[in-house]
C-alpha cells in the first residue's frame, strides 16, 4: 500500500506552487485509477479533486471540458450524443466500464496515455486544444507528438477546449477488442463531411491502440479528399492505412494482425 504524501491545495495556483517547489517527484492526482494499481511507486501527489475543474460548458464557439470531468459525466452529457453525430458518446463508452468511467478523468485520460485513452484520439480528430494552468496551451497535434507527460512538464492540464464550428460533421468511433469492455486491440475514429451520397469532401482519420500515442493518417486522408467511395478506392486506402500505420508490440496479437485488420475496421465506420 502506498505511503505517498498527498498535498491538498486550496486552489490551482497553490497547486502549481507545490508542483514547482517540491524537491521530490510530485504528480497531479486526477482520477486516481492508476495510482492504487502501483502502490509501491514513490511519488507524492497533488489532489486535483475539489478544485472545481469538473465541468462541461459550451457556448456558440467552443466546448470546454474541465480536466477533472469524468468520462462518465462526459458520456452522460446530452450533447455528447449529438455533436459530431455522437462521436464523443460513442468514444467514451469504449473506455473501461461503468464504475471506472466514474473515476477516469478527461485530463487523466489524455495525459497518462494508457491503453484505454480513447479521448486522445478524439481530440486529434476534433482539433482540440489542451489548456494548462501555466497558460501554455497546446494543440492536440503538439500534445500527442510525444509522450504528453514529457511535453507537459511541471504543469497541470486544466481544461480541454474543442471548437464547435464543425459540430455537424459526422464522427464515428470503433473499438476492436476481444471482449466488449477490453482494452482496444485497436480503435479507429473518423470525422468527415460528404459532398454527396458517396463522395467524401474531406475526412480525418485517427487510430489509437497501435502505439502509445494516437496516430493520424494524413496521407490517407489526402488520398480520400473529394473521392467517391468505390470498391477500388477502399482497396487503395486500406493499403495506404497499412503503409502509414506505426504499430508497436502487444502481447495479445502480432503487429501483422493489427496491420492486416486496419482496413477492415475502417470499413466498419465508413459512410
Amino acid at each position: 500500500m502506498s505511503n505517498n504524501t498527498i498535498y491538498l491545495p486550496k486552489n490551482l495556483s497553490e497547486a502549481l506552487k507545490i508542483l514547482n517547489n517540491s524537491k521530490e517527484k510530485v504528480l497531479p492526482l486526477a482520477g486516481g485509477t492508476t495510482l492504487l494499481l502501483n502502490p509501491t511507486e514513490k511519488f507524492s501527489y497533488i489532489e486535483l479533486d475539489g478544485l472545481n475543474l469538473d465541468y462541461i460548458k459550451s457556448d456558440k464557439n467552443n466546448l470546454s471540458i474541465g480536466a477533472m470531468t469524468t468520462i462518465g459525466q462526459l458520456a452522460a452529457w446530452p450533447q455528447s450524443a449529438r455533436y459530431w453525430n455522437g462521436l464523443i458518446r460513442e468514444c467514451t463508452l469504449t473506455i473501461a466500464s461503468t464504475p471506472n468511467r466514474n473515476m477516469i478523468t478527461a485530463g487523466g485520460n489524455i495525459v497518462g496515455l494508457r491503453p484505454w485513452s480513447a479521448l486522445a484520439g478524439v481530440l486529434l480528430l476534433l482539433d482540440g486544444k489542451i489548456i494548462t494552468a501555466r497558460g501554455k496551451n497546446y494543440t492536440a497535434k503538439e500534445f500527442f507528438s510525444k509522450l504528453p507527460k514529457t511535453i507537459l512538464g511541471k504543469n497541470i492540464v486544466t481544461k480541454i477546449r474543442i471548437p464547435l464550428n464543425d459540430k455537424d460533421l459526422i464522427g464515428k468511433w470503433k473499438k476492436f477488442s476481444l471482449t466488449e469492455t477490453d482494452y482496444p486491440i485497436l480503435s479507429m475514429g473518423i470525422l468527415y463531411k460528404l459532398k454527396n451520397k458517396n463522395t467524401i469532401e474531406n475526412i480525418k482519420i485517427v487510430a489509437t491502440g497501435l502505439t502509445i500515442l494516437p496516430q493520424r493518417f494524413i496521407k490517407t486522408e489526402r488520398m480520400l479528399k473529394n473521392k467517391q467511395l468505390t470498391d477500388n478506392i477502399i482497396k487503395l486506402l486500406t493499403k495506404s492505412l497499412q503503409n502509414e500505420a506505426v504499430i508497436g508490440a502487444d502481447i495479445r496479437v502480432a503487429a501483422e494482425y493489427k496491420r492486416e485488420i486496419l482496413g477492415a475496421i475502417f470499413k466498419d465506420i465508413l459512410p
Binding site: 466500464s97 476481444l178 471482449t179 466488449e180 469492455t181 477490453d182 482494452y183 502481447i251 495479445r252
Partner: peptide, 11 residues
C-alpha cells in the same frame, strides 16, 4: 483481468 478476459454482461 486486464489481459485475461472473461465475459461481461456486454458480451
Amino acid at each position: 483481468f486486464n489481459y485475461y478476459k472473461i465475459f461481461s454482461t456486454m458480451d
